[in-house]
Computed example of a mutant assay.
Amino acid sequence: MQEKYEKLQENLHSLNRVAIGFTGGVDSTFLLKTAVDTLGSENVLAITIDSILLPRKELEYLKSIIEKLKVKHIIVKVKPIEEILENPVDRCYHCKKYIISLMLKTALEYGIKTVVDASIVDDLSDYRPGLKALEEGNIRTPLLDIGFTKKDIRFLSKQLDLETWDKPSESCLATRIPYGTRITEEFLEMIEEAEGFLYSLGVRFCRVRLHRNDIARIETSIGDMEIIMENRDSIISSFKKLGFKYITLD
């Protein structure tokens, strides 16, 4: 484990100055922290692409991480392009390609030529068309190249006293909508408010997935099932007010 960490430091040191795509998740927080410790905060730029696809609670959370790391942070607010809103099977490719173009442009404005992404080995086991966009954009992926897994990063994050070490994995709100269903602001608001209600009950992890435009399928951990069942009636009432007709639990 220590050998991987030292290789990461060597890799980052060779880049001199970097811009890092920052989401506030386990992987990007670990990468950003390591970059700051290795290169100094003056040589690191964190870039967050903000749109209606990013949950508001995640935006506020990542801002709190930035304050603790004391690194320059740029938030680029954009509207998703049509190729993303159409929600094709390769939506993630179009989204990542768009994000990369914005990050490269922003990095150059600050005199930085190298953009680094926090993809890891675990990403290779899922359907991730966005990885193709990283290759096309010549984006550096040191965690992936060195062989870091989520388990590695959680372990090292705990050693570095990062509060994200046990943070549940997050994903953009678009992943809650099935391919082929157009992504609308109305759907995203329904989903985000529904998840927000569940979190307010004390649930630690959840996804509210949209089906047939009016079905909410709640995905949660076994540990959170009890909270869901204890609050069954209030959840049904709240979700129906948001526009869902049927609520299921997975």
Rank of each mutant, 00 (worst) to 15 (best):
G223H: 02
C206L: 14
V26L: 13
S125A: 15
E163N: 15
I236D: 10
F205R: 09
G180S: 03
E189L: 09
Y93R: 04
L131F: 00
I177C: 02
R140V: 14
E67V: 08
I139P: 09
Y5N: 04
N16G: 07
Y127S: 07
Y199I: 10
P178N: 10
K241N: 12
L124P: 10
S200Q: 07
V44Q: 10
R91P: 07
L156W: 01
E186T: 04
N16R: 07
I99F: 00
Y61T: 07
K63T: 12
T34S: 15
A194V: 01
M229Y: 07
D122A: 10
I75G: 07
L124F: 07
K70D: 15
P80I: 02
Y127Q: 05
K70W: 05
K96T: 02
Y5W: 07
K240A: 04
R128H: 06
V115K: 01
M225L: 15
I215E: 12
E3N: 15
D161G: 03
N11D: 14
M103F: 00
V89K: 11
F148Y: 00
R154P: 02
Q159Y: 07
G147V: 02
S64H: 08
K4D: 08
S14G: 09
E60L: 15
K105D: 15
L143C: 08
R140Q: 15
S41R: 01
C95R: 06
R209A: 09
E60D: 13
F239S: 11
D161L: 11
D145F: 05
E86K: 15
L156S: 01
K97H: 04
E3M: 14
E135K: 15
T175R: 01
K241R: 13
Q9E: 14
K77V: 03
K96W: 00
F148L: 05
Y199T: 11
R56D: 12
I66M: 13
L108Y: 02
R182C: 07
A174D: 12
L201H: 01
A194H: 01
G243T: 04
Q159H: 10
R217E: 12
V18M: 14
V121W: 09
H94T: 04
V36T: 05
T141N: 15
G223I: 03
P80T: 03
P88I: 08
K151I: 04
E193C: 09
I139L: 12
L124D: 14
I99V: 10
E109R: 06
T149M: 14
L188E: 13
K97N: 08
Y61M: 13
K57M: 13
N138V: 13
G147H: 05
L69A: 02
H13M: 10
E195N: 06
K158H: 02
R17N: 05
V203N: 06
S51F: 00
L102K: 04
S157Q: 11
E226P: 05
E109D: 15
I47N: 04
L104G: 11
R17M: 09
V71S: 08
G202W: 06
S234H: 05
I139V: 13
